[in-house]
Amino acid sequence: MANKPLSVFVTTYNNGRTLPACLESVKWADEIIVLDSFSTDDTLVVARRYGALISQQMFIGYGPQKQSALTATTHDWVLLLDADEALSPDLQKELRQVLADGPVADGYEMPRQEQMFWRMYHPGTRMNYYLRLFDKRKGLIDDMPIHAAPKIQGSVTRLSSPLYHYGETNIHTKVEKINAYSSGLVADKVRKHRWGIRLIMIVYPPLFFIRSYLFKRNFLNGWAGLINSVIAAFYVFLKYAKLYEHYQFAKYGKGLLPDDAPPLPGEYQPGTGEET
């Protein structure tokens, strides 16, 4: 059946800077759902400007939060967007054509073109594809602690036009994100009983750099591509370094510190990424 109505769902927290571009790119949708985690900036003002249906709840994790927003949608066909993403004009046309003609698959992946610090990805860079448009009757959002994404039971195909991402507009933001993400993934990796951590720390980061810089063609992005690939390799290292640290804390506690060492404020709590 053609002319499928579309619900767009977005989770937000203090995204007033990027949300206008996000919602402007989907203002033609039949419904926009915004689930906010009690923003203190103008996020809600922006959402109301675009006629979004707004609700608020405390942040309960990336996957559960997105699933809550998905549950609030009323149409079968839904589009997941992050608040720092926007559909390119060509992708808007492509999506609207799919919905007008009637989808031939249960889900659609789209390439994401990243802003990499001071520039956008070179078009020749190999972009990652993300499942964002799907029939919600066929799936839900997974429970990954960080990179939560839709999982569907059905056929998936790809669109050709890019989704723009404005999540890493400078090096400081990029490094902050990988620090937070790597801490957030420790508990998940502990649960999965990862082994060979020391070998992974030695071998995987340089291989990941080669994959990013050469095989994904980040060299086309000049110095921004080199910097990005180095940070990406460090992110891989950091995930497993923090996992190793978790096991060392669990094994030794304070046993490797001098007996007469006084307790220090701000002691790191293994596996939480937080300080007391």
Results as ranks from 00 to 15, higher is better:
residue 176 E to D: 14
residue 83 A to D: 14
residue 216 K to W: 07
residue 83 A to R: 02
residue 151 K to D: 01
residue 179 N to L: 14
residue 172 H to V: 12
residue 68 S to D: 05
residue 108 Y to A: 00
residue 37 S to F: 09
residue 82 D to F: 08
residue 201 M to G: 09
residue 65 Q to N: 07
residue 53 L to E: 11
residue 48 R to D: 10
residue 135 D to T: 04
residue 167 G to T: 09
residue 91 L to I: 10
residue 63 G to R: 01
residue 148 A to L: 02
residue 9 F to Q: 01
residue 129 Y to F: 13
residue 235 Y to P: 02
residue 246 H to Y: 15
residue 139 G to W: 03
residue 16 G to N: 01
residue 205 P to T: 15
residue 141 I to Y: 01
residue 76 D to E: 00
residue 149 A to W: 12
residue 250 A to P: 05
residue 227 I to Y: 02
residue 203 V to C: 11
residue 34 V to L: 06
residue 6 L to T: 14
residue 194 R to W: 14
residue 207 L to Q: 13
residue 7 S to Q: 08
residue 192 K to V: 08
residue 120 M to P: 07
residue 263 P to G: 09
residue 181 Y to L: 04
residue 227 I to H: 03
residue 203 V to K: 05
residue 242 K to R: 15
residue 121 Y to A: 13
residue 174 K to R: 14
residue 138 K to Q: 13
residue 29 A to S: 12
residue 67 Q to F: 05
residue 189 K to H: 13
residue 145 P to G: 01
residue 175 V to I: 15
residue 5 P to I: 13
residue 175 V to L: 11
residue 145 P to Y: 04
residue 167 G to H: 08
residue 83 A to G: 15
residue 214 L to G: 06
residue 166 Y to A: 14
residue 261 A to F: 11
residue 46 V to D: 02
residue 207 L to V: 12
residue 167 G to R: 03
residue 164 Y to E: 04
residue 192 K to F: 11
residue 102 G to A: 11
residue 30 D to P: 09
residue 218 N to I: 05
residue 11 T to D: 06
residue 171 I to W: 12
residue 137 R to Q: 02
residue 254 K to W: 02
residue 19 L to M: 00
residue 4 K to E: 09
residue 233 A to D: 03
residue 147 H to E: 04
residue 59 F to S: 10
residue 57 Q to A: 15
residue 23 L to T: 11
residue 236 V to P: 10
residue 172 H to G: 09
residue 132 R to Q: 08
residue 228 N to K: 10
residue 17 R to A: 12
residue 239 K to M: 09
residue 42 D to R: 11
residue 88 S to W: 03
residue 87 L to H: 01
residue 28 W to K: 00
residue 167 G to V: 11
residue 269 Q to K: 10
residue 6 L to V: 09
residue 41 D to R: 04
residue 169 T to Q: 07
residue 188 D to A: 15
